[in-house]
Write a protein that binds this DNA or RNA. Structure first.
Lengths: 167, 167
DNA sequence: TCCAAACCATAGGATGTCCAAGTATATTGT
DNA sequence: ACAATATACTTGGACATCCTATGGTTTGGA
């Protein structure tokens, strides 16, 4: 996006916070801002790796979830809960996945309200290729040292649990 | 958005990764996914706190940056580098801030290409009120224990530096 | 049995992010 | 001095996310 800045802009913001007397909130502000910036970096990398496959990270996550499901199909609601996005966001992703033939919406056998999502054969192929690329180009060389990745996950797990993501 | 899930969906994905033999990538995948989910949680909280002020987190960040600038004004490019977003994203935010009268675009004295951003009096007032609310309702009670916030910031700082955010 | 309440999925609208192009202005090299 | 190149910002388009509202379907209580 641009060449490296001479100073960490979040560290600068933190200093401003302290010098205005908001010492108590400074660490939290810096951590939260850093989380948002880091997410943005990862999202850009992931999307750029997936673009040649005609996917985005959001759509990849849908495919990956379906690929792991035992029965091969999942209700929209169930999928949106597991992906932790709004039902409307999932509808959006699935619209695009269905338009490109990677996913099918099928009727639920007994509940007329529910739609089941199912991977198509092509969806399964693309998922496999995209997953290999993500593993090689992002996860295997994420820029996070192994110990940092584990510690990061643990800190965020505590936070997510505390914030009501899971029990 | 919904009631807590019985199991952490990211931990479940991690298990799937391991059971498919992608052990080496599993920790990294889990950490990255958790960062994205956490960012989304914080963004929703921040936006919800700022909504009564007619702001979003993106627009708040612009105001906050201007509020800290010594000279009271900043070129678009400089601001977009410090906020680490694309120039087009900043254009979008500034359009809305200007439309509501919180920010002004003024001519650069010598460079005809450059626009300087300047807080209006009303922008400064709203910034102060919004910042107090964010400090009280988000940063002071973020759900991150103090030690976790510091450790998190340090891990992410190493990562951001390594990924070229700053020197 | 039957109607109200709950639930599922989608449409519409606002915002944000990025990328690719386009316009205007500066700077640079010959 | 002038043409080529670089920089600054905006426009238009593709996607993602959320919220609110709406149309079906199912369920549960009177």
């Amino acid at each position: 996006m641009s060449s490296p800045l001479p100073r960490d802009p979040i560290a600068q913001a933190r200093e401003q916070w302290v010098s205005h007397g908001w010492d108590a909130e400074a660490d939290s502000m810096a951590a939260i801002t850093a989380v948002m910036r880091t997410a943005s970096i990862f999202l850009q990398r992931a999307d750029s790796i997936l673009r040649p496959h005609g996917l985005t990270f959001a759509r990849f996550e849908v495919l990956a979830l379906l690929g792991f499901s035992k029965r091969g199909s999942l209700p929209m609601t169930h999928a949106s809960r597991l992906l932790q996005v709004h039902a409307t966001s999932l509808t959006n992703s699935v619209d695009r996945l269905e338009a490109t033939g990677l996913v099918r919406r099928i009727q639920h056998p007994t509940d007329g309200r529910t739609r089941l999502l199912e991977l198509t054969a092509e969806g399964a192929d693309i998922l496999a290729a995209a997953r290999d690329d993500l593993n090689e180009q992002l996860f295997a060389d994420s820029g996070l040292p192994a110990a940092d990745a584990r510690e990061l996950f643990q800190i965020l797990s505590r936070f997510r649990r505390a914030s009501g993501d899971f029990l």
